[in-house]
Write a protein that binds this DNA or RNA. Structure first.
Length: 179
DNA sequence: TCCAATATTATGC
DNA sequence: GCATAATATTGGA
C-alpha cells in the first residue's frame, strides 16, 4: 500500500438510548463503528465545519444505527469503507448484509453460501474482524448448535440485539433454529 | 516461511 | 453432556 499516510479517520459520536456510538469515517465512507465504551468522548477537533458529504454520511449512519437498535433494517446505509479487510472478509461481510432483521444464520450456513462450507471457523474469524457492527449484522450469526457463539466488544450487546429482534433462543429448552 | 490463535463443527465416549 | 480432532483464514515472529 502507500506509505505511512497519516490517514486518521474522522470520529463522530452517535447519541442513542444505549449510549454514544463512535463512527469513524474516511474519505471513502464509514470505516468503523464502535460501541459506547463510556470512556473518553470522541473529541473531534472542530478546526472547521464538517464536509457536507461527511455530514450526510453521518446522518445516514445515525438513522441506520438507530433503526438497528430498534430491531429494524436500516432503509439506507452510508457508503462503507471496507478496504481494511481482505477479499474473504469482505465477502463474508457482504453476505451478512443479506440477512434481514429477525432472521439468523449459522457460521456454517454463511460459509456454505460463500462456497467454502468447511471454512466455518474462518467465517467466525472474519465476523470478529467486522469493523462495522449493527450495520453489518454480524450479531445475527449464531452457532449451529444453537449457541450465541461470541461477539467482539461485548457478548451482552449481541444478546441485547437478538432479543430486540425477537430471535433470541430460550436459555433453557431446545432452541428452534428454524426460521 | 512457519507458528499459534480464533465469534466453529462433527464425532466419539 | 464433555472432550478431542479437523479445517480455513489471519497476523505476527
Amino acid at each position: 500500500m502507500n506509505t505511512k499516510t497519516t490517514h486518521v479517520p474522522t470520529r463522530l459520536p452517535i447519541a442513542t438510548t444505549a449510549g454514544d456510538f463512535i463512527a469513524r469515517y474516511t474519505a471513502h465512507g464509514l470505516a468503523g463503528l464502535d460501541f459506547p465504551s463510556g470512556a473518553a468522548p470522541p473529541s473531534h477537533d472542530p478546526t472547521g465545519p464538517l464536509p457536507l458529504a461527511l455530514r450526510h454520511w453521518h446522518d445516514l449512519t445515525t438513522r441506520a444505527v438507530t433503526a438497528a437498535l430498534a430491531g429494524r433494517t436500516p432503509a439506507q446505509l452510508p457508503p462503507l469503507d471496507l478496504t481494511h479487510g481482505t477479499a474473504f472478509q469482505q465477502s463474508v461481510w457482504r453476505e451478512l448484509q443479506t440477512i434481514a432483521a429477525g432472521q439468523t444464520r449459522s457460521y456454517a450456513q454463511v460459509a456454505a453460501a460463500l462456497g467454502r462450507p468447511t471454512a466455518t471457523r474462518a467465517v467466525g474469524s472474519a465476523c470478529g474482524a467486522n469493523p462495522v457492527p449493527l450495520l453489518i449484522p454480524c450479531h445475527r450469526v449464531l452457532a449451529a448448535a444453537g449457541g450465541l457463539g461470541g461477539f467482539t466488544g461485548g457478548l451482552e450487546w449481541k444478546r441485547r440485539l437478538l432479543e430486540t429482534e425477537g430471535v433470541l433462543p430460550p436459555a433453557h429448552g431446545s432452541p428452534r433454529r428454524d426460521a
